[in-house]
Design a protein around this nucleic acid. Structure first.
Length: 431
RNA sequence: UCCUCGAUAGCUCAGCGGUAGAGCAUCCGGCUGUUAACCGGAGGGUCGUAGGUUCGAAUCCUACUCGGGGAGCCA
């Protein structure tokens, strides 16, 4: 021994003396024995101090420890069947960095408002740690899947001159003398990038200045937006189901400790394998009408509609070919049926709603120009976008994957405020 | 923006017209295997704010503030 170990690796050190750095998550003691729950970010271990074995000085020292006190601990790793990780630490030396007083988050229940006010401390708790760990693994899986499928990462701008889709409210700011807005989507820029690099993806934040107050909405969230030149609607769906099933299997094989900490039913995740079922918008409308929803062809789906559809399946489902009237201006109409678009939303199971939205993009210059005029978009502001159809236009398609909704679904969380470290919510900018 | 629910000890809540309560946390004491440890004791409150009704309001009424859930928007 001599250098500090990480708690997660301690099962490899049975019988050895190790030293660890960490915080006291909890302490239980009787007159002759003290149990310390020690965490270091990599995991948890129980430190045991028996008065007769450890000596009076160490015992008294350990007795002063409080929740979230910071410590360096030396001890012998022992196998113990009563431990969840199979090992315990018989503490032989203790060095206190700080005794913490009045840590606000106690090992009891707390309300949402209190926890959100203390988000900077809440992320230390085992469930929040597990969520952030899984978020990181999901990001890693997304990158490795896309990188292995010939995609190149391209970063679109965050400060933009105007709206990309024109439907949602944007955060306004000044760019010296000009007006500027925080991006709500990098998609149009990714279309330009796809014409330069073939297959591209962006990974960055998106901002929506909507007064949304639901468990599925964040003001600031992270999105992955792949875009592919020479790709069809079918190609687009194949990449999406390949990506999502890869991500889920990566989490299942790399995050078993975290999924267990969250109490996630992994049998539901194991069913998430491509191909995913596909239904058309028309079929979805018929299904909803047959189940006594009051909805007509041409209406968009609300959250209850999406949930009813998704509940029919044990894996994500694609709903494709929506009426062009309820979708974005750039979506390509189905040549055999121009009233519907070559688009699809992927609805996650268990009522988590839309996690992916994508489409084939209009590649015909005349048609795109017509759409600009119908939607009263500025041809001047978007001259660069129209240029993409002037200089070597090709069929292309892409999609946007909402990171927090995906993490919420895989972790089985109630709310998207938990899969992001410091959520920006309506009326909440602190901490 | 609209609908709906809520605000009482540091935290989670009970009390719903008649002297402000419990559990946890904190402090003191006890306990050799605890797992949200347990047992005994102590301190801790202008009942969100402002008005009103009443002999009397945490409790009933009105407005406001702050927060939860949902709708719309979407990832």
């Amino acid at each position: 021994m001599s250098y500090a170990q990480v708690i997660a690796t301690l099962p490899d050190y049975i019988g050895k003396t190790v030293s660890i750095n960490g915080w006291i998550a909890n302490k239980r003691s009787s007159g002759k024995i003290i149990f310390l729950q020690i965490r270091d970010g990599s995991g948890f271990i129980q430190g045991v101090i028996v008065r007769d074995e450890a000596g009076e000085e160490l015992f008294q020292n350990a007795e002063t420890l409080t929740q979230e006190s910071s410590v360096r601990v030396q001890g012998i790793v022992r196998k113990d069947e009563r431990s969840k990780t199979g090992v315990e630490l018989s503490v032989t030396a203790l060095s206190v960095l700080q005794i913490t007083h009045d840590y606000p988050i106690t090992p009891k229940e707390h309300g949402v408002e209190f926890l959100m006010d203390h988000r900077h401390l809440w992320i230390r708790s085992s469930k929040q740690r597990a969520i952030l760990k899984i978020r990181s693994e999901i990001i890693k899986a997304i990158r490795s899947f896309l990188d292995d499928h010939d995609f190149t990462q391209v970063d679109p701008p965050i400060l933009t001159p105007s709206s990309c889709e024109g439907t949602t409210n944007l955060f306004h700011t000044k760019y010296f003398e000009e007006d500027a807005y925080l991006t709500q989507s990098g998609q149009l820029y990714m279309e330009a990038a796809a014409m330069a690099l073939g297959r591209v993806y962006s990974f960055g934040p998106a901002f929506r200045a909507e007064r949304s107050k639901t468990r599925r909405h964040l003001i600031e969230f992270w999105m992955i937006e792949p875009e592919m030149a020479f790709a069809s609607h079918e190609d687009n769906l194949a990449v999406q189901e390949g990506l999502i099933s890869y991500v889920v299997s990566h989490v299942l094989s790399n995050c078993s400790v975290e999924l267990a900490a969250l109490g996630r039913d992994t049998s539901k995740l194991e069913k998430v394998q491509a191909p995913f079922p596909r239904i058309t918008y028309d079929e979805a409308i018929s299904f909803l009408q047959a189940n006594s929803f009051e909805i007509n062809w041409g209406d968009d789906f609300g959250a209850p509609h999406e949930t009813a559809i998704a509940k029919q399946y044990d894996r994500p489902v694609f709903v494709e070919k929506y009426p062009v009237g309820i979708k974005a201006f750039y979506m390509k109409p189905d040549p055999s049926r121009p009233e519907v678009a070559l688009c699809a939303d992927m609805l996650a199971p268990e009522g988590y709603g839309e996690i992916v939205g994508g489409s084939a993009r209009i590649d015909d210059p005349e048609l795109l120009l017509n759409r600009f005029r119908e939607h009263q978009l500025s041809e001047e502001d978007y001259a660069w976008y129209l240029d993409l159809r002037k200089y070597g236009t090709v069929p292309h398609a892409g999609f946007g994957l909402g990171l927090e909704r995906t993490v919420a679904w895989i972790c089985g969380l109630e709310h998207v405020r938990e899969p992001i470290p410091f959520p920006r919510l309506l009326y909440r900018l602190y901490p």
